[in-house]
């Protein structure tokens, strides 16, 4: 498959008199191939939006190489801009314009046929509200309008930064279906989101960023498999005795609540056999597969101390990274 987005060694440091030097992206790599629905995950301030802005020429990178649809970005981005639909964070629109007029304006500026406006409104579910003023839209409707603006060009690449912001559950589901249908039509989608369950449902590939660096990338099932500890949840009548028996059989086990968690087991029948031989009958034996949320929290260190309020700069670094060299930030609060 051909690369639609390639980022190698992207670096961006923001400097300001008040805040000093802050490294937002530090040697980040990303590869998105044609036809993928690629999830882009990271904690707040990890550099996701800075990366997308750099890719789209809105932020000047300090180093690294980027290409979009085969053209170097941002130098030759204008060549392919007509085939790239993008929303970065929550775009603002004129409150006094109607949704339809907003899209017509963008279509005119971009040299897109006005007939695409109604198609885009239909796709995002705003067909009947297109003549309402934007200032009367809910957050979710504004988000739909933003997605419609990205779809206007009939893009081959769609970059969506937090597209589910403000959407209700039905809206999230519609957005998921929309992305699937676009991907089925050959559109490559790069989507950043905090709703990890959604990413796991929609995306076939994922890249996780933490403090400006890539901490995981690949097919979603492969990333999950890489963090599978082969754990099983076991319910028995006497958990403490069961733990002792499993330890005697050289298995790792611990009581958690009213059940046991046994780890490092590739064949679960071993558990049944060891306990059954001693008259302890297993009531439940459930494999504990990692989900994207647990992998994300593990990789980014976001779930290490749930009782302590986590600061945005507390995310984990990839193994071997120099902690002193990286100070992460929420770029929206920084003077560039």
């Amino acid at each position: 498959m051909s690369a639609v987005i390639e980022i190698e060694g992207l670096r961006k440091t923001f400097r300001s008199v008040r805040h000093g030097k802050r490294v937002a992206v530090d040697g980040f790599d990303l590869l998105v191939e044609a036809g993928q629905i690629h999830g882009f995950l990271g904690p707040n301030g990890s550099g996701k939006t800075t990366t997308l802005r750099a890719l789209l020429g809105l932020v000047r990178a300090d180093g690294g190489r980027m290409t979009v649809l085969g053209e170097p970005s941002p130098e030759l981005l204008p060549r392919v801009a007509g085939r790239v639909g993008a929303i970065v964070e929550s775009p603002q629109f004129f409150g006094n314009f109607t949704g339809r007029r907003t899209l017509r304006l963008l279509a005119r500026a971009g040299g897109v046929s006005i007939s695409r406006v109604d198609e885009a409104l239909e796709l995002v579910g705003l067909r009947d509200r297109g003549d309402d003023r934007v200032k009367g839209y809910s957050l979710g409707m504004k988000q739909r309008l933003a997605v419609a603006s990205a779809l206007l060009k009939d893009p081959r690449l769609l970059i969506l930064d937090e597209p589910a912001n403000g959407l209700d559950p039905a809206g999230i589901r519609e957005m998921r279906d929309l992305m699937r249908s676009l991907a089925a039509a050959g559109v490559t989608v790069l989507v950043s989101s905090h709703i990890l369950g959604e990413i796991q449902l929609i995306c076939d590939h994922v890249t996780i960023i933490s403090r400006g660096r890539r901490v995981a990338a690949g097919r979603v099932d492969e990333v999950l498999a890489g963090h599978d500890r082969h754990e099983f949840l076991v319910r028995v009548a006497e958990p403490e005795r069961a733990v002792d028996l499993l330890h005697e059989a050289e298995l790792t086990a611990a009581v958690e609540g009213t059940a046991l968690v046994v780890s490092g087991v590739t064949d679960p029948t071993v558990i049944s056999r060891v306990l059954g031989e001693q008259g302890l009958w297993v009531g439940e034996l459930t494999p504990l597969r990692p989900d994207l949320e647990s992998v994300f929290l593990e990789l980014t260190g976001a779930g290490e101390h749930p009782s302590v309020p986590r600061q945005v700069d507390d995310s984990a670094l990839p193994a071997g990274a120099d902690d002193a060299a990286v100070i992460d930030l929420d770029v929206r609060g920084v003077d560039a």
Binding site: L77, A81, V88
Partner: peptide, 14 residues
Amino acid sequence: NSGGVVNLLLWRPR
């Protein structure tokens, strides 16, 4: 201030 320029630059990155 409102992001209108950013919106426009996504369409015309010049």
